[in-house]
Structures are given as C-alpha cells and as structure tokens.
C-alpha cells in the first residue's frame, strides 16, 4: 500500500483508531461529555500525533537504527513523547496564547494516551517513509476527532434519555460505542482496504 490517499482513508475510516484498533479509549470515554471539549481534545490529539510521529520517525531512523539500539524503542519513544508534550505546552503558553487556551488543558492528558504511542509504533511497523507517516498520523488523528465529536453528540442525548439506572453511565456508553463500531465495520473493504 503506497498510495498516500489510500493510506489516509485506511487510517481515517477503515482502521479507525478508536473503534477498530481500540487505542485512545480513555479520552474517548472520559472527555466526551460535551461536543466542545471533544473537539478540543481531538484537535490536540491531531497536533501532538503529527509532531510525535515526525520526532519519533527521526529518532528511530536517525539514531536507533544506525546504532543498532532498536531494543530501546519502547523506552525512548515514551520519553520522547513525554518531553515533546512538555515542550509544546511551554512553547504554546509563551508564543501562541489563543491556541494554548484552546488546547492547553488537554495536552498533559495526552502524554499517556496510548493512541499517540500506538501510532508511532504502527508507522514503524508499517515501514512508512516520512511523508506517508505524516499522512498516516493526520488521518488517524482526524479519525479520532470525528469519532470523538460524534460520540459526544450521542452522549449528550443519552444523558437525557430515561433508561434503567444500572445501565446509565459506562454500560450504555459501551453499547452505543459498539453500535458505532458496527457501523464503521461497513467501511471495511472500501477501495479494497482491510
């Protein structure tokens, strides 16, 4: 699979990061109470995911591979991402105040978000080049955001629905997410992508 458009579609819809790959479930269930916060979180994830895939791609191909240190991948990636998020936060706070006000509170939450680390591992496992890994991470981040916003809109209505108290909260969220995943299953096979 070399075509950038197909890589984008596969990451965005067919292998949707939340519903098909089960990464980033904590923010998906935790921060999806209102459409506004969901879109803020989605934006922050796209931003950090793209930056993280650039940095880890450079670290992996520039340092780990030439020096035969691939076994340090897990430790190096998580520390790189944690320091990257800190750096981005400080930079935004100083230079781009409006962006910081919009994304700021979500940035610390993202450090331990498995979606970010997962995408960096997936780009390495899929042997993407630099351009394709950028497209892959943007597509994945967009897929996360779209699903987040849709789910937040569903949850806003679920809060008002008269349902049995024992399925209020998590259970009904899981079942709603399951139905969304069932709908997304329909995308598999699109343009021959699996």
């Amino acid at each position: 699979m070399k075509d950038p458009a197909l890589i984008f579609l596969a990451a965005f819809l067919v292998n949707n990061i939340v519903l098909m790959r089960f990464l980033g479930l904590c923010p998906f269930f935790g921060v999806s109470n209102a459409v506004e916060t969901a879109s803020g979180m989605g934006m922050a994830v796209i931003f950090v995911m793209t930056l993280a895939s650039w940095i880890t791609w450079i670290v992996y191909h520039g340092i780990l591979l030439p020096f035969d240190l691939v076994f340090l991948r897990t430790a190096v990636f998580i520390l790189t991402i944690a320091s990257l998020v800190q750096l981005v936060e400080m930079f935004l706070k100083k230079s781009y105040r409006t962006l910081y006000n919009a994304l700021g509170i979500y940035l610390p939450l993202i450090t331990t978000n498995c979606a970010i680390l997962g995408v960096t591992f997936l780009t390495i496992d899929n042997k993407f080049d630099f351009l394709n890994s950028t497209i892959f991470s943007i597509g994945t981040g967009l897929g996360f955001m779209v699903v987040m916003i849709t789910f937040a809109a569903i949850k806003e209505r679920l809060d008002l629905a008269p349902i049995n108290p024992s399925i209020k909260g998590y259970p009904i969220s899981f079942i709603a997410a399951g139905l969304m995943a069932l709908a997304f299953l329909g995308f598999s096979g699109l343009f021959g992508l699996t």
Binding site: S166, F174, F184
Partner: peptide, 21 residues
C-alpha cells in the same frame, strides 16, 4: 461480530451493566 471490534464494546457494556445491577 462478537469476535470483531463491535463485540468487545457490547460484551463489556453488558458485563458492566450486570455488575452494576
């Protein structure tokens, strides 16, 4: 569909509901 992704959400949703109940 139980062994596909949607099944995971439905199974844990039903299990959580039973635990709550």
């Amino acid at each position: 569909f139980m062994i596909l992704p949607p099944g995971a959400f439905l199974v844990i949703g039903v299990m959580k509901a039973l635990i709550n109940r």
